[in-house]
């Protein structure tokens, strides 16, 4: 057995042991299910409430994904502009940093005042959270180029656009993709926080609202079920972005050497 397969087995075993411990303790001490439900009760509730929880997950994920697209588009565009013009860099960065340090929970009510459509406001809030890592990484990547590669471009009289398109952007891609991976999970967090702030009910209710609602009704198992769903969605999103990043870097021969592992383990 290779080291990688052993790792995976160990990780699964630890997770299983923790779940078993949880279930065991709940049963041993006869903890009432409305206080702390065991994993089996949560699983049962997840199944029972699937018609409420799954559409809610779809709403939240939709908000997060849309926010991610908006954030990446805006951040890469602004990053490129910032690198092209020092003046713009000085204009953009302080605003971006300020937005970054103000918590989205505090900004969301303000946005909700001005943006009439709640869905749009939610996307904006989530995008605001996801925006910064992509912007910071884009600027870092575009500015951190090999001086000799730059000399090479200058030697042949390359224009700024040629340098941007054929040197800076491809060289920045690993940074930008890493930023997007971080932004993906942040967008999900941002979407949940914004939903809490908006408190939207009805058709468009996301997972955050379902968690609040279950709390009000003391349906603790359902709260846990929604949390499990949220965690799973976050892990899935992170995994997909990571996989996409790896594939793209390998295709462009930008992959780090340590990622080359024997394929027999997979």
């Amino acid at each position: 057995m290779s080291g990688r397969a052993a790792d995976r087995l160990l990780r699964t075993a630890v997770l299983a042991a923790l779940l078993l411990l949880w279930e065991g303790l709940v049963r041993l001490y006869e903890v009432p299910h409305w206080l702390v439900p065991g994993p089996l009760a949560v699983a049962a509730e997840l199944w029972r409430a699937r018609e409420v929880l799954l559409p809610a997950l779809a709403v939240t994920l939709g908000t997060a994904l849309l926010a991610l697209v908006v954030a990446v588009g805006a951040a890469v565009t602004l990053g490129v502009l910032a690198v092209l013009s020092r003046l713009l860099e000085y204009a953009i960065l302080p605003v971006a940093v300020t937005l970054q340090v103000v918590p989205v929970v505090a900004v969301a009510p303000v946005i909700l005042v001005y943006v009439e459509r709640v869905e749009t406001a939610l996307v904006l809030c989530a995008a605001l959270v996801a925006f910064f890592p992509v912007l910071a990484n884009t600027i870092t990547g575009l500015e951190r180029i090999d001086p000799e590669q730059r000399d090479l471009f200058r030697l042949y009289g390359a224009s700024r656009w040629q340098e941007l398109l054929w040197l800076r952007l491809p060289a920045a891609l690993p940074y930008i993709l890493a930023g997007i991976r971080v932004a993906g999970t942040l967008a999900l967090v941002g979407a949940v926080v914004a939903e809490f702030a908006a408190g939207t009910a009805g058709e468009q209710a996301g997972l955050a609202f379902r968690i609040l609602e279950s709390g009000w009704r003391l349906r603790i198992a359902r709260m846990y079920a929604a949390l499990v769903l949220l965690a799973a969605a976050g892990l899935l999103l992170h995994g997909l972005l990571r996989q996409g990043e790896r594939l793209m870097l390998r295709r462009l021969h930008l992959a780090a050497r340590e990622e080359a592992r024997p394929s027999s383990s997979t």
Binding site: E148, L155, G157, L167, H253
Partner: peptide, 18 residues
Amino acid sequence: DGPGAVAVVFQDPVLLPW
């Protein structure tokens, strides 16, 4: 003189990896 009339070979090959 002018672009293309002068070429430089650096100590590193300075190739674009992508």
